[in-house]
């Protein structure tokens, strides 16, 4: 029974890749989707298009403006700050994607069954997720302070040479942001994987174990194919969230020291609102959008490509 219930599950996951069957059209009417389409088109497409027009102007965020063609875009790609922001954004996004998925999956596997305190630990590990990113950053600022707990801990275990001014160190500051991001979102990724693991029949794993498969083989060939939907969701969500990283950077380093942790999103914010260069900021945000679309397409291509192979 166990194995028979699992086999169709895998088959079903693959079904969308096959040709659609005609009968299914009967089940849904098109107009049901209209409210969702209308509200998202109005809020996203129409309003963003209106705002995006300013990318081709020299508008200062208030008052009159002129159209300046592609000047703002030329400025982005010619400046160091624009390039640095792109690199930092990519570093944080991929570090975040990898960090949350590795730790989230490990925790999910470890807490899936067996451990007595598992329900309690699942809640506790999820707790950082419910805090607002701004509150999280304030707490961590205390931890990273020059005389804060992190440096005192390093001192007490004899690692004085590791002590530094974490949030203003040109090299380590971007890592401090990454750690906070991963700390906050690992619990969420864990839950997504736990949900996936709950659908993996234990009997299937046991059968593989009897056949002599070790832990890694069992994960690779039995468990992972079954939790692929969780993997797709977790990786897509984390990638998009990582590429838009803003709150943590603003609250922890403000983009410093000396622009070392500036990201596209913080630059967009600073240019459009703080420096009164709305046109330039709008152009920057369009660049950010294109970057996210390209990376997401690559990511989707990779995940679906692997799906076909397996």
């Amino acid at each position: 029974m166990a194995i028979s219930s699992a086999a169709p599950a895998t088959a079903r996951v693959k079904r969308p890749a096959s040709a659609p069957d005609r009968g299914s059209k009967l089940f849904a009417s098109w107009w049901w989707a209209i409210p969702a389409l209308v509200v998202s088109i109005l809020v996203h497409y129409v309003a963003v298009a209106v705002g995006g027009t300013f990318a081709f102007t020299n508008w200062k965020g208030i008052g009159a403006f002129q159209f300046v063609g592609f000047d703002n875009f030329a400025k982005i790609f010619s400046g160091d700050l624009g390039r640095g922001a792109i690199l930092n954004t990519l570093f944080l996004a991929f570090g975040f994607l990898i960090g949350t998925n590795v730790f989230g999956l490990l925790l999910a596997l470890a807490l899936n069954r067996g451990v007595k305190l598992r329900y309690f630990l699942r809640v506790v590990i999820f707790m950082p997720t419910v805090l607002s990113p701004l509150a999280v950053s304030y707490i961590w600022r205390f931890i990273y302070q020059p005389q804060g707990p992190l440096n005192s801990f390093l001192g007490s275990v004899g690692l004085e040479s590791w002590q530094r001014t974490w949030l203003a160190d040109p090299v380590s500051s971007i890592w401090t942001i990454l750690i906070v991001m991963v700390w906050q979102s690992t619990g969420l990724v864990m839950v997504i994987y736990l949900a996936g693991l709950a659908g993996v029949p234990q009997e299937l794993e046991e059968a593989a174990a009897i056949d002599g498969a070790n832990v890694f083989q069992r994960f690779r060939h039995v468990v992972f194919p079954l939790i692929r939907p969780s993997f797709v969701i977790a990786s897509t969500l984390m990638l998009i969230q990582g590429l838009r990283v803003f709150d943590q950077v603003m609250a922890l380093t403000g983009g410093g020291p000396f622009n070392a942790t500036e990201t596209l999103a913080t630059q967009v914010y600073k240019q459009t609102f703080a420096y009164g260069q709305f046109g330039y900021g709008a152009a920057l945000s369009l660049v950010l959008t294109v970057l996210i679309i390209v990376i997401s397409l690559i990511q989707m291509g990779l995940t679906s490509g692997r799906e076909r192979k397996s």
Partner: peptide, 14 residues
Amino acid sequence: SFVVGIILPFQLAI
């Protein structure tokens, strides 16, 4: 159109 909507820069729409 929905997936792209996730990515569009809402700052511009404020």
